[in-house]
């Protein structure tokens, strides 16, 4: 087997190995299913509830993507605004840090108060939790622009806007696309937090119900569904990142 093949297969092998280990441990220690169900049991339960899982996954997916989309637009705009000048950067950054330090779980009740139980708080929680890395990355990309490059353009009579459009923004794109794969997973976490606290549908809600009914295998089934969705979304944005900013991943192609 070639090295490339091994690298491709490694994640699958590790995943399967983990599940085998889990199964073996459950049998070996004679774990009761209501404490830690065996993976085979979890998979069987997932099959039994495939309709509910699918439906609620779609709901979670929709709130995640909606919140994430708002975060992208807002994060990009705020990031460019903050990165525009040193003064704005140093003025707004502490406020941002303060905002980001608030656990979003604490915000959900307020959102419920304002918008009621359901989809809207989930979307907003997903948005609130995921815009921060986008803002920070875009602002950092802009703020770390080489002063020489700025001098070259200014000595040609370029305006601040032109410097941003020609150099600043393209330069911060790898940071932006890099932040998307972090942001999408965070948005996902945000949506689920909100769903487990106050919602009528979604994977988080399903999980809560399963727990209330003591259907532990289904709780684990939901967790696996969450992991699969999370990996899929991360993979999509990692791929997008490579497509959009290939020039930033140039090591290995070049001679120096």
């Amino acid at each position: 087997m070639s090295a490339v093949n091994t690298e491709r297969l490694a994640p699958w092998i590790i995943t399967i190995a983990l599940f085998l280990l889990w199964e073996a441990a459950c049998i070996l220690f004679d774990m009761p299913a209501y404490v830690l169900p065996r993976p085979t049991l979890v998979l069987a339960e997932m099959w039994n509830f495939k309709g509910a899982i699918l439906l609620n996954s779609l709901q979670t997916l929709w709130t995640t993507v909606a919140g994430f989309a708002i975060a992208v637009v807002f994060g990009l705009a705020l990031g460019i605004f903050i990165g525009w000048s040193k003064a704005i950067y140093s003025g707004l950054y502490p406020v941002m840090i303060g905002f980001n330090s608030i656990p979003k779980v604490a915000v959900v009740p307020i959102l419920v108060l304002w918008f009621g139980v359901g989809t809207v708080p989930a979307i907003l929680t997903a948005f609130l939790i995921s815009f921060f890395p986008i803002v920070v990355n875009v602002a950092t990309g802009l703020a770390t622009l080489e002063p020489e490059m700025e001098d070259v353009l200014r000595a040609l009579g370029a305006s601040k806007l032109e410097i941003m459009l020609k150099v600043g923004i393209p330069r911060s794109m790898p940071y932006f696309f890099g932040s998307l794969k972090v942001a999408i997973t965070l948005a996902f976490v945000g949506a689920i937090i909100s769903e487990t606290i106050a919602a009528n549908s979604g994977l988080g809600h399903l999980m809560l119900q399963a727990q209330a009914n003591f259907e532990v295998p289904l709780v684990f089934g939901c967790l696996i569904a969450l992991a699969i969705l999370g990996i899929a979304m991360y993979a999509i944005f990692a791929l997008l990142e490579q497509r959009m900013t290939g020039w930033a991943f140039r090591s290995g192609i070049n001679a120096g």
Partner: peptide, 9 residues
């Protein structure tokens, strides 16, 4: 300048 400061994209 000492660094070529070319735009990699």
């Amino acid at each position: 300048f000492q660094n070529a400061t070319l735009l990699p994209w």
